[in-house]
Write a protein that binds this DNA or RNA. Structure first.
Lengths: 231, 231
DNA sequence: GTCTATAACAAGATAGAC
DNA sequence: GTCTATCTTGTTATAGAC
């Protein structure tokens, strides 16, 4: 995440005229079509607002009005920064997919099997805790048949899953974990962890809106996978 | 499901004029505002088409044009049978929620704990296999914050979950199953079974579109819950 | 860069003939 | 009951002033 020179919580509305050449880091005139800090900040504001709206209503359900309202900008101003609605959505997905594979990628074939699998589960669980909107954006996309991320799934994701499934399979065959179907094992981790983000509304309504939906989840899932994997 | 006198696959378009009084079963003139067999069949066609479209695109993403196209009827004709778009969606949700609780309701406090829990898991898994569209309709609704089914969740669903969680808790405390958090146990069954319907697109793209996403799921989940629950 | 105003179009819903 | 045609509104996107 390389985001220097950008406030994380900029004041709303258009403010602070920035003269070109007066930028943060030591490169006064890097190139012709440069990006000012305001532009960066506004793009960020827009994407954050858009994440709120798209994750809650899906692509079609979201409107530019809602996003503009949430970003504190006018609708035409949104379209100054992004070509169209689709482009905003695509930017969000791209940013998401860029890091979506990391937790699984980190699963180390040379580590201790149970430790590695539990750590992977925890990384996914923390993703649900820290980035629930991203999880729901992804879920919306899959629910609708994954029209915009089909290439990613059939390509990078499938490749990585196949690779790690082989690792799990080896661990099972060598008796270091109990014999389990590696694909279902991976799917189960996705299902169990993402559920806490995607179905958070339901969980909150059942457990009471006060309690944190993720309370006790880590302990429960750790117990579950220890018992499942012990040879 | 009481659906007599209705073809399951009626020919498309408006056909077959039915004179009132010429209905199937022996009640020639039951009441004034009666429902003809065509009406019944068309309502069914509409709801089936709507289920396709709503489950794939969400409420806002679905259009009456798509539903009309899928049902083989004209858009105004749709609105002859249902007051508006909302009414179609509400009819689907009502029909769904009516049976959504059944699998959990059947969990018998007097049965064998492990057998009962595994049977519940299987009933949910079969729901994902036989009614994946309904599962996705529900998932769409929850993802968007459950605006239309909040009362159901806070009422009937929560009540039933609390009741059955108590049963599970008793089983755990009496040592008949391993000590587990009953709520997380229930959530885990929802997550693991519904995942095969809600994320079917992703699973198909990873495992290859040929193989059935549910292949091996039953065995894997049975193994998982046996190991988790054994005292 | 940001806004107001508005064009262009999609989508829900209705009117009225048949 | 079903259709074609149409009204109305909401939504994306653009024009053009500042």
């Amino acid at each position: 995440m390389h985001e220097d020179c950008v406030d994380s919580h900029p004041a709303p509305g258009g403010m602070a005229i920035v003269r070109p050449g007066l930028r943060c880091g030591g490169h006064p005139e890097r190139r012709e079509s440069m990006t000012t800090r305001i532009q960066k900040a506004n793009r960020k504001r827009i994407l954050d607002a858009a994440l709120d709206v798209f994750s809650a209503h899906g692509f079609r359900g979201a409107t530019l009005d809602q996003i503009a309202e949430a970003a504190g900008l006018s609708k035409p101003n949104l379209l100054y920064y992004f070509d169209n609605k689709e482009a905003i959505h695509r930017a969000l997905l791209t940013r998401l997919l860029d890091t979506w594979l990391d937790p699984l990628r980190m699963l180390d074939p040379n580590g201790d099997p149970e430790t590695e699998i539990l750590a992977y589960m925890r990384r996914k669980l923390h993703l649900s805790r820290d980035f629930p909107r991203e999880s729901r954006l992804f879920a919306n996309e899959i629910l609708q048949g994954a029209p915009r991320i089909e290439d990613f799934i059939r390509g990078d994701l499938r490749g990585l899953v196949d690779e790690k499934a082989q690792v799990l399979s080896n661990w099972a065959q060598s008796g270091r974990i109990a014999p389990v179907d590696p694909y279902h094992l991976i799917f189960s981790i996705w299902a169990l962890t993402q559920h806490y983000a995607d179905f958070a509304a339901q969980i909150a309504m059942i457990r009471g809106d006060a309690t944190d939906p993720l309370d006790g989840a880590d302990a429960f899932l750790a117990q579950l996978y220890r018992r499942l994997l012990t040879p």
